[in-house]
Write a protein that binds this DNA or RNA. Structure first.
Lengths: 153, 153
DNA sequence: CCTTGACTTAAAGTTAACTTTAATAATTAC
DNA sequence: GTAATTATTAAAGTTAACTTTAAGTCAAGG
């Protein structure tokens, strides 16, 4: 029983519509806009109106987040696209290529950690000098997304 | 040129010593104590004194963190140990067994994500209906440690 | 016309895991 | 004996990624 046809421009979406179709809250969309990840046009009365392409852009943001890319980097990446254009297939390929590398590193770090953990089964390990878990050679962090209070050590 | 031998009890460590040997800040140790992850004895003037075993306990906390276990869960796990005892080899085995499972899940989630990403190279994907990246079957999150503001969707 | 419901903004709150600050006390070094 | 470290506490600040709240505007239905 939905009817919202008094919209002048039928190809635009309201913030509520984008939120529902993209699967996130309207507050998140406003937040992304404040961080420069997305943009919006306004109708006469100041309400946001989005083109269909925004759904793809938001989808890309969500995938990048699942990969573990912080919003700031996602914003940087998206800002390399020609002025606000909807990402094309080759845009997406370029972005995902870059992100795949980081993802592989994360997987590698976690896998190494698991292997070290496996190597420690019942060894009564965690010795000060010899335990690889306690003396990680890879200082590079396995940290996922989220707050790390500036020092990911 | 270090000399600190006026300590009555030579087998205890000050908070500064634990911090240095464990590789974290004194503020972090106090914070862990406030969260119930570690305990301390106090000397006559109220300064913290730790037994050697604390180093192993802190090492376990650090490994668990690398695995991606939030401090709250680490605290729960450690609290299953008999009253404040230094974790033994079998304690460690039990704890790491539980944590390994979560670690493997995380690795699995990220690996699946990477494979989906690989399957999308140049496909111009992210289609509303058919893209597995856009419609992840596994609602379970790939989220690492860190703030997720209560809704890990 | 009036009531919902969706929209607007700025500002403050949330969570995790700490750090920083401030003001003071105890130790250690010389 | 005094200066420099190191310690103590409580409270506030930090970062990320949002959400919630407050106070009000706009749109659609009856």
């Amino acid at each position: 029983m939905k009817m919202r046809r008094s919209n002048t421009d039928h190809v635009t979406l309201t913030i509520g519509e984008v939120a529902e179709r993209a699967g996130l809250a309207t507050s998140a969309l406003r937040f992304y806009e404040s961080r420069g990840l997305i943009r919006s046009n306004r109708n006469a009365s100041g309400h946001r109106r989005y083109a269909r392409g925004m759904l793809r852009r938001v989808a890309i943001i969500k995938v990048a987040q699942r990969i573990g890319i912080p919003l700031g980097e996602i914003a940087d990446a998206l800002s390399t696209l020609p002025e606000g254009r909807t990402p094309t297939a080759s845009d997406w390929q370029r972005l995902s290529d870059a992100w795949r590398t980081g993802l592989n590193e994360r997987i590698g770090t976690l896998t190494k950690l698991r292997d070290q953990l496996d190597g420690c089964i019942g060894c009564g390990c965690l010795s000060l000098e010899s335990c690889p878990l306690r003396n990680p050679a890879d200082v590079a962090a396995a940290a996922g997304p989220g707050a790390r209070a500036f020092d990911p050590n």
